[in-house]
Amino acid sequence: MKVLVTVKRVIDYNVKVRVKSDNSDVDLNNVKMAMNPFCEIAVEEAVRLKEAGIATEVVAVSLGSKVCQEQLRTALALGADRAILVESDEILESLTVAKLLQKVVDDEKPGLVIMGKQAIDTDNNQTGQMLGALTGFPQGAFASDVKVDGDKVQVIREVDGGLQTVSLTLPAIVTSDLRLNEPRYASLPNIMKAKKKPLDIKTPADLGVEVKSHTRLVKVSPPAERKAGIKVASVEALVDKLKNEAKVI
């Protein structure tokens, strides 16, 4: 079974973002970029499926400008066999990304597509589910455990209040939640080997998909600041403040 895994280039999660002074967007100039943490978990899961003898090939896909090749090379260093970049300098909204991925799925015919549940830049949490709708594949979103069994995959999902287990008929889509696994680090020899692995480049035109905007970003603002309050000296003082000043207990 072939496994397709998607990879998004985003701001490094350790970097504090700042809004541009003209409120047009956040400032990404000279900011460290990295693979989206949820995508790292997705890649790890795909590689583990290959190591377990369930996946025969792991194909990593990214969409965006040329620099996304860096994140695809990281995926290759982590154990993906080959990579595909759908190259475009335009803003790719989730729906467009899902349409492009649908075409890649049509070409590659994977048994399983593993994606991050959301990207830490736009926090949309939607591309995997959209791809599910477009392909007609079932989905196991927010997965904390994935077991392939014959023509089915059993997925434990993190839901409000606990866990839910679903059984999906393959081909299917899984989106990773935090506790699915702990991603490995790429070793230096594997980083070197990754440079020689195949990386194909396609364009939205090659795939026959029109890049369309369904939304307009009006502005980006910093969040309302919360002011620091006061320090209280003792538990007695705290209880007094909560009862008589804040009146919340």
Binding site: L95, N124, N125, Q129, M130, H214, T215
Partner: peptide
């Protein structure tokens, strides 16, 4: 934006060929 609706709403958006505006 609960885990239940976050699961099915993007599928609705894609079926209707529209964006989802999240959260």
């Amino acid at each position: 934006a609960t885990t239940s609706a976050k699961n099915f709403m993007p599928r609705v958006a894609a079926l209707l060929d529209v964006a989802q505006i999240s959260e």
